[in-house]
């Protein structure tokens, strides 16, 4: 269940970890917008480097690389579909007169596919910085201070809290059922799906029992006692947060300016000149 490892957030402190999650989210959203604005490989390559200083400052290099590796399969898929789609309908590309036959035309296609892939990688790279450096607690707090109803924020943090627990439980049930002779990897697709029923039922029953006990415990600790709850923690904007806002706004302005007034060359045209 290594998929769920990412949910076990460790308490770490760094400049990046201590940033206000709302500001961090704004920054990442600016990166997102920029990645959508630009289609050229050159521009996207520049974008790819922007989250890197944050990765190093937060010392999350290893986890960050792991999430990129996790996205590799999807990246290859995006590259292949873009290339194949471009090959069969090349008319929509500048610099290609169908059919695709010259080397330059192949290069144009390749560059375009690489750019689309890089756009995806940029999104993963920046959002994973956000998730790797924001504790779910912080995130819940941010949601709450953004005037999202407390019930929703509570549901969010509790869900995050119980993902690893449920994952462990699923593993235990799977082992128990295998020990009784259940073979998960046997038969055709339909059969395989059916194999999971003896896993799912105890898992669901347990989850329901668990949620009842949780509700009981919450009630016993005065859930709903007052209209307006207080909170042990409070998010306050610090200097680093203001600096990041400034950086984000400047980046966005610059990006819009470049998008409107500067035509970014493609690598193929640059090289073949």
């Amino acid at each position: 269940m290594s998929v769920f490892e990412g949910f076990k957030f460790r308490k770490v402190s760094s400049v990046v970890h201590d940033l206000d999650p709302r500001i961090k989210f704004f920054f990442v959203s600016v990166l997102f917008v920029m990645a959508i604005l630009f289609t050229k490989l050159l521009a996207l390559t520049v974008l790819f480097f922007i989250p890197l200083p944050f990765v190093f400052m937060a010392k999350v290099n290893r986890q960050w690389l792991r999430s990129l590796r996790g996205a590799a399969f999807l990246a290859i898929f995006i590259f292949a579909t873009n290339f194949i789609f471009g090959y069969f309908s090349p008319a929509s590309f500048q610099g290609i007169t169908p059919p695709v036959d010259t080397l330059v035309e192949y290069l144009v296609l390749l560059e375009r596919a690489a750019a689309m892939t890089l756009r995806f990688v940029v999104l993963i790279a920046s959002f994973s910085v956000f998730f790797l450096t924001t504790s779910p607690d912080h995130l819940g707090l941010a949601l709450q201070q953004s005037r999202i109803p407390y019930e929703f924020c509570f549901a969010f943090t509790t869900a995050v809290r119980f993902v690893p627990v449920l994952a462990d439980e699923a593993q235990t049930i799977m082992d128990a059922q295998k020990a009784r002779g259940l073979e998960l990897e046997r038969g055709n697709l339909l059969k395989r799906v059916k194999n999971y029923i003896p896993i799912l039922i105890p898992l669901i029953v347990n989850a329901i029992r668990r949620s009842l006990e949780l509700a009981e415990s919450m009630e016993s600790r005065a859930w709903g006692a007052s209209e307006k709850r207080t909170n042990l923690y409070e998010l306050k904007l610090k200097r680093a947060d203001y600096i990041l806002v400034l950086i984000s706004v400047l980046m966005l302005l610059l990006a819009v300016y470049v998008w409107l007034y500067v035509s970014i060359p493609s690598l193929t045209t640059l090289l073949s000149l």
Binding site: A222, A225, S226, E227, R229, T230
Partner: peptide, 11 residues
């Protein structure tokens, strides 16, 4: 802190 938050106790 959960119970105290519910009682709306000052921070």
């Amino acid at each position: 802190a959960f119970g105290l938050e519910n009682f709306a106790m000052p921070r």
